[in-house]
Design a binder for these strands. Sequence first.
DNA 1: CGTTAGGCACACAGCTCGGTGTACTTAATG
DNA 2: CATTAAGTACACCGAGCTGTGTGCCTAACG
Lengths: 205, 205
Amino acid sequence: MTELEKGPQGLRRGRGARERIISASQQLFRDQGINRTGMDQLCAVAQVSKRTAYQHFTNKDELVAEYLRRFDPGVTAGVFDRTDLTPRERLLAVFEPPRGKEGLTPLCPYIAASVELHDPEHPASQYARDYKSTIAARLADTAREAGAADPEQLGEQLALLLDGAAARTRVLNTESFPTAAAIAAVLIDNAIPTTARERVNTTVG
Amino acid sequence: MTELEKGPQGLRRGRGARERIISASQQLFRDQGINRTGMDQLCAVAQVSKRTAYQHFTNKDELVAEYLRRFDPGVTAGVFDRTDLTPRERLLAVFEPPRGKEGLTPLCPYIAASVELHDPEHPASQYARDYKSTIAARLADTAREAGAADPEQLGEQLALLLDGAAARTRVLNTESFPTAAAIAAVLIDNAIPTTARERVNTTVG
DNA sequence: CGTTAGGCACACAGCTCGGTGTACTTAATG
DNA sequence: CATTAAGTACACCGAGCTGTGTGCCTAACG
């Protein structure tokens, strides 16, 4: 433990290089964007030598893809597993903004990557596509559970609302998730036949 | 007219430099993104010398701002002035995708600029904000005309749908405006009291 | 015809970026 | 202790970027 923190010159932080790189990319890509974050700065923040970084990731592109893959293992996704909520409540809870500590909801990194990279063939863009499809599918599953007449349609609609809120929050610099939530409430109530809704209400409340 | 097309060496296209620069930026910034388009390439496409470009625009930033300002003086905006449609039809017509010749609707350049520039203080980002507010306001006006109970809310909601469709089309590489249009129809019918709706229907049809 | 504003070619400065080469040091494992 | 995997320091390359400096040209206008 003598020299765990610092070596004779500079950083010297030891074995966890890869994790530090990824966690630095989480911070920097989100705060500054991908294109505006150079590998030099990223390595400095990660306290990792550039050489090491390029032994873990052959490209910056590959790092970007891994950054997306390792993003958020359970913020939005976690809502779907909450058993304390009815399916309908779960669908609405998705629109509670992730709230980055304070201030506005940061732009969904999948949208940001797609726009910044500007290449649908980029591995990160492909992953973004997959992720968005997955979210829509999970929304559809929950919609089905809630008794929606056309669950796939409702899932796609709610996904669109999420993306709209994210994009609009970024452009306007104003929180837009409440607006999306209001729309979601309307859509959900419109999609669930009264019979099913009443059944749930009597079951839960 | 002898040497209007070409001079002794290279380009030599004459007086309309500024317009050519802007129109080249329309094409390139849309197709490649702002950050991935260098001034060299832009000048080559515009058939303008770099020196001339920098005499018209002190910065690339300033050019980007002007590019947004000069964008689309009437595609989406034009719908609002169509007197052959009822207010309700106008609100729905906004969701007819601009359809870039063929293929997907290109990402709204205001969103693209906000994300790419990544600086809310950038003049282009500020203009994007203004533009989005204006669109929402015009939607609200039309909503009021259509007899909506809460026109401002409906305007903001429809604006969110537009942005969601734009963002999602880009990320998924799949046209999302029809989904947005479907939501819009629900919201509009939900926001307009039956009395007002019937009045319009009997008047028009 | 002469003036001049607008445009041109071209080289280049200065910077940042992604990525590599080399030789060294440390920490864990057997 | 010896080996080896992981990391480090630092210089460097080539490319691309924004932005200038300089001198020349020519089309339009009075």
